[in-house]
Nucleic acid binder design. Structure first.
Length: 584
DNA sequence: GCCGTTTTCGGCCCGACTGTTTTCAGTCG
């Protein structure tokens, strides 16, 4: 595999930047950027689309870009890209990563000062050589140095599980201020993206000034990037950028919609608004004339709810998790939005650890904690024998544990049903960690990858397929084995794995640990399209991890998953019938 | 370069903040 989707996506994103720096047609470089964004998020390898002849079905990909993708896939090169690299060095694109530096400044630095690398820019700024360039000054020069320092601090996108609690803490602080009428997290956190670039907060109030003052001076702020009455931005010491907007409560609906995004979803909505004779922005829907000019005399429509915004555009409310301009607006228009799964739909938790391996609580304690959280059945699935580091269970201990689970289940007397299973390792050589006759004695079997995660694609795929084809295995746990941010997904042939799962009827897990969330939106969507059953589990090693469930559900919702697709939303009888049917 | 509840051609979203300016361009989201 020469190129991953993300590699190819990056080439088009780079091309967009190059064209923009050189002042090419705006709509052309926007088209490349849009295509790049679309390619980064596809559920299948581009090679598969190319051999299907469906490249041009990808939104944002037309004939010209499809041709370029095919050229990359077949020759491993792209002549057009090489030509542009000669024009605009890749190192110049790095300069645009600095906050406050865009294409115009990048071009200026190069043409007026011969700067093409970050290091050269930093040296020039330190030497005071930037301040005399047109449109620059001492302050801009200082901001560039700060921006370069901030780049070094940044660690890329932050896992949702780290960004969301940070956002909630700030929101709680702002809510405590006087005259705050509403406060919410918007942006990619609200949409449930697995990783977060920056945090968008929204507050409704008629006294923005003190709220902004608190925001830019609160503890944990490393740098103020902007400070106005409706909009401020700060960089936190944890390396996260946070933006706050304050507006009147009467505009809550348009504002929340606007700042939730995504950008592409909003662009399409604003186009629909124009078609209906309105200009849509964060404060109102304003009537426009045929040329698109706002009619100042005509009354604006203010929306205090998102429902009202969508209704004015002739659409039902679209859940934030779907707002990526990946066909959700068309579904809404046709009245075919999915009934997305909710946390309340989850009845069982099929993946939990105890002190028998590397968990913190006993079988009974875990059961009681799960009951407290509204679960009606759980499966105890400790690690298997080869995973020594996590206290994996020998066959003898596994059977001893089964006796304890049976006893706890009897003691609890139906308060919550406790089943006995395992999270069995798929070993490096593609064999499974327990023999079939042992697996046959368990209520539920998960198979997971934990070791030798750097193997080549063929071997990783072979291991997963071996587990999928074993009739005793019911679920593949955290299928990509990623652990964000330090460990990316294993290199696997998703199409082969999904095809085999669809054939055998095995379930795939959306692991709710916010550092895992294995089947990101497009993959979850692909899975249910193929009829693969899903499970959303907590993989809890302690009671706190049971509260991660909303992250898993959020990820499923992004994949348009409904409760019926998820085996642990089913009542116990239906779930156990499904497991029994698999064993045969 | 993409795309179509009317278009296969002619469109393609919107405003706040900053730093430099004397009225605005650049950047960002």
């Amino acid at each position: 595999m020469l190129f991953t989707n993300k590699d190819i996506a990056q080439i088009f994103l780079n091309l967009a930047d190059m064209l923009e720096i050189q002042g090419e047609n705006k709509f052309k470089f926007l088209a490349y950027r849009r295509a790049g964004e679309a390619l980064a998020d596809l559920p299948r390898d581009l090679k598969a689309y190319a051999s299907d002849g469906t490249l041009e079905d990808i939104p944002g990909v037309g004939k010209a870009i499809a041709d370029k993708i095919r050229e990359l896939l077949t020759t491993g090169r792209l002549e057009f890209y090489e030509k542009w690299q000669a024009e605009v060095p890749l190192s110049l694109l790095d300069i645009m990563r600095i906050n406050g530096v865009g294409p115009k400044k990048a071009r200026l630095f190069r043409e007026a000062a011969g700067i093409i690398t970050l290091a050269q820019l930093e040296a020039a700024a330190r030497a005071g050589q930037l301040r005399d360039l047109p449109g620059m000054g001492a302050k801009s020069e200082q901001k560039i140095l700060e921006g370069i320092a901030a780049l070094a601090r940044q660690t890329g996108r932050m896992p949702l599980g780290k960004a969301r609690p940070a956002a909630e803490a700030v929101l709680d602080r702002l809510r405590a201020l006087p005259r705050v009428q509403a406060a919410a997290i918007a942006g990619s956190i609200r949409r449930g993206r697995v990783t977060i670039g920056d945090v968008d907060l929204l507050v409704a109030s008629d006294t923005p000034t003190p709220i902004m003052a608190e925001f830019v001076t609160m503890p944990g702020v490393a740098r103020v990037l902007g400070h106005g009455d409706t909009k401020s931005s700060v960089e936190l010491q944890i390396g996260l950028q946070m933006d706050l907007r304050v507006l009147p409560v009467s505009q809550w609906g348009t504002a929340l919609q606007y700042f939730t995004g995504s950008k592409n979803h909003n662009v399409k909505l604003r186009q629909i608004a124009l078609d209906k004779g309105y200009s849509l922005n964060e404060s109102a829907l304003s009537p426009v004339d045929a040329s698109g000019t706002i009619l100042e005399d005509a009354p604006k429509i203010y929306c205090d709810s998102e429902e009202q915004v969508y209704a004015t555009l002739g659409l039902p409310w679209i859940p934030p998790e779907l707002r990526e301009d990946e066909g959700e607006i068309e579904l809404a228009r046709a009245g075919q939005l999915p009934q997305l799964i909710t946390v309340g739909d989850i009845q069982g938790d099929l993946h939990m650890h105890t002190t028998w391996s590397d968990g913190m609580l006993s079988v009974k304690e875990m059961a009681l904690q799960a009951k407290q959280r509204g679960r009606s059945y759980i499966v105890i699935t400790d690690h298997s024998r080869s995973l020594g580091i996590a206290g994996g269970l020998s066959i003898e201990r596994l059977l001893a544990q089964q006796a304890e689970v049976r006893q706890v289940n009897a003691d609890l007397n139906g308060e919550i049903i406790v089943l006995h299973g395992t999270e069995m390792d798929i070993k490096a050589d593609a064999t499974l960690d327990y023999p079939d006759d042992i697996l046959a004695q368990l209520d539920f079997v998960i198979a997971s990858l934990h070791v030798s995660l750097n193997q080549p694609r063929d071997q990783i795929t072979r291991r997963l397929l071996a587990a999928i084809h074993n009739p005793h295995v019911d679920l593949i746990g955290h299928p990509t084995a990623r652990y964000l941010p330090e460990r990316e997904a294993v290199d696997m042939d998703f199409e082969a794995v999904f095809t085999a799962a669809a054939q055998t009827g095995i379930a795939l897990e959306i692991n709710s640990n916010p550092r895992r969330l294995d089947l990101e939106g497009p993959y979850a969507r692909r899975a249910i399209e193929l009829g693969i059953p899903l499970a959303i589990n907590t993989d809890a090693h302690n009671p706190g991890m049971m509260d991660d469930l909303p992250y898993g559900v959020l990820t499923a919702r992004r994949g348009r998953v409904e409760a019926r697709h998820v085996i642990n939303t089913w009542p116990y009888e239906q779930f156990s019938a499904w497991v029994r049917a698999r064993g045969t």
